[in-house]
């Protein structure tokens, strides 16, 4: 009996190591602190309860449960930089009622799940945005509003505004329109929920996997990511 248990443990370990080779495809590691060992903890805990399932099925079950909860309770942090922010009050209040999707505004980056970037970003605000994004706890998602986050929009030739936001932070979803109507905003959020439920909104894993690349882009644009003022020292 003891021998059997040992073999099983080995199997579990082996599978974990195999899966950790491709970090981007790995399932969300919800109790694990290391990105390289997703679900190592769960697999051992849940082994006794669902003995009939293969490790792969078990992993999928846990993953889908975690995705269900993440998708249906999205707390927003609104980074209201540009004009698209004006479309959010309608989406939030009685007319379009974002709360029926389980979404709501939150006060701080620590509590939030999605970061809404509503419009253009100047170099000065990009620094703060990177700080904010890195403070959020994982899994976290980013939504870009309008063409300004996609290719610079009407500010494409400005010296002070970045053009392609996804070079600096990973974006999970863009919402089109200048500005997007509240219908488009709600539709976009529904799409984001669908993406999270099937586990395809993996921007935060991409940020881990290509961290050096993102940092290099940030440095090229900003010179230095650190902020030197009286609030950050």
């Amino acid at each position: 009996m003891a021998k059997k248990a040992n073999i099983k443990k080995d199997k579990v370990k082996k599978i974990v190591i195999d899966k950790s080779k491709s970090i981007i495809d790995a399932p969300s590691g919800m109790f694990s602190d290391k990105i390289n060992e997703p679900f190592a903890h769960e697999m051992i805990v849940s082994k006794d309860r669902s003995e009939n399932l293969t490790p792969k099925q078990r992993k999928r079950k846990w993953k889908s449960m975690a995705n269900y909860f993440s998708a249906n309770s999205l707390w927003m942090l609104m980074y209201c930089t540009g004009c698209c922010a004006i479309e959010l009050p309608q989406a939030m209040t009685s007319r379009y009622d974002m709360e029926r999707l389980g979404m709501g505004p939150m006060a701080t980056p620590r509590q939030a799940d999605i970061l809404l970037i509503t419009g253009y970003l100047s170099l000065k605000t990009l620094r703060r945005l990177i700080y904010t994004y890195e403070q959020m706890s994982e899994p976290k998602y980013v939504v870009g509003f309008g063409p300004c986050t996609l290719n610079g929009g009407i500010y494409h030739d400005s010296h002070a505004v970045i053009n392609q936001l996804d070079q600096y932070v990973p974006i999970d979803l863009y919402i089109a329109g200048c500005m997007p109507k509240p219908e488009a905003v709600m539709n976009g959020f529904q799409d984001l929920i669908d993406l999270i439920e099937v586990g395809e909104a993996t921007g935060w894993k991409d940020y881990h996997a290509r961290y050096e690349w993102y940092k290099q882009n940030q440095k090229e644009a900003l010179g230095e990511v650190m902020i030197h003022d009286e609030f950050h020292e």
């Binding site: 590691g29 919800m30 602190d33 975690a66 909860f69 993440s70 249906n72 309770s73 209040t93 009685s94 009622d97 709360e99 029926r100 999707l101 389980g102 620590r110 799940d113 706890s137 994982e138 899994p139």
Partner: peptide, 28 residues
């Protein structure tokens, strides 16, 4: 309360979803 404000409001089990989502997240 949502109905009083002429909204649909969340599902009645939304608070359970919020709690389990938070327990799913990584902590610092």
């Amino acid at each position: 309360v949502a109905r009083m404000q002429k909204r649909y409001g969340p599902k009645w089990y939304q608070n359970f979803r919020d709690i389990f989502k938070l327990l799913n997240k990584r902590a610092i």
